[in-house]
């Protein structure tokens, strides 16, 4: 049986291109296309496609939102995001809202075919670049309880704990006393401390001095 495909994209030219490409394959059949939330939702309810190729940034609608609505209406259609966006934020949100796969518009023909088949079988498909960006996006945020200080902040902290004045710290580190003050305020804020005594205590317990 052919895989029935619906194309949600606001570029007629892109839709035509994809249609021509997929209809050339015997196992696929493009059964509809649309570019507004309303049209996409009602078409899907009516035509019951197996897979939707879902753009994210469309003129009058947002693919993330449309996917969420499809899932809210218990639709079991497989959603394969096909987007220009390769940033992890978009990928995360799209998967969160219930997409089964994510490929880029620059994806090659073979990969697109594999992606459609894979999501149709119920598995997840992310193209290489997508999964790499997603992983990087997941890795970068630091754990909440770990406080990251920059080397210069540590220098400033040490010198505060050793009772140097703002001006002395400034001279030693080749920065202005105003910047020393900003470092001091940032340190207090980042460490959740109230005053210099707190900084001194922190420097000692963390063995900076």
């Amino acid at each position: 049986m052919n895989i029935k495909i619906y194309i949600a994209d606001d570029h007629a030219m892109f839709r035509d291109g994809i249609k021509a490409m997929l209809n050339a394959e015997s196992q696929f059949e493009v059964i509809g296309e649309g570019d507004t939330e309303e049209a996409i939702l009602s078409d899907c309810a009516r035509l019951q496609p197996d897979v939707i190729l879902m753009d994210i940034s469309m003129k009058d609608s947002d693919g993330i939102e449309v996917t969420r609505k499809l899932r809210a209406s218990n639709s079991e259609v497989k959603v394969l995001a096909v987007s220009m966006h390769n940033e992890s934020e978009y990928i995360k949100r799209m998967l969160d809202s219930g997409a089964n796969g994510y490929i880029l518009k620059s994806t090659g023909r073979n990969e697109m075919i594999t992606a459609i088949k894979t999501v149709n079988e119920g598995a997840t498909f992310l193209s290489n670049e997508v999964s790499q960006n997603l992983l990087k996006g997941l890795n970068t945020p630091q754990p909440k309880n770990e406080i990251r200080l920059t080397p210069r902040e540590i220098e400033v902290l040490k010198m505060i704990a050793e009772e140097y004045s703002n001006q002395e710290i400034a001279d030693a580190l080749f920065i202005s006393s105003r910047t020393v003050d900003t470092h001091r305020r940032n340190l207090l804020e980042k460490l959740g401390l109230k005053n210099t005594a707190g900084l001194v205590k922190y420097a000692i317990t963390q063995k900076y001095i």
């Binding site: 570029h11 030219m13 892109f14 073979n110």
Partner: peptide, 14 residues
Amino acid sequence: IGPQISTTIHQLET
């Protein structure tokens, strides 16, 4: 332009 060039690429691939 982005999607247009993607379309062109897809057609060439086909």
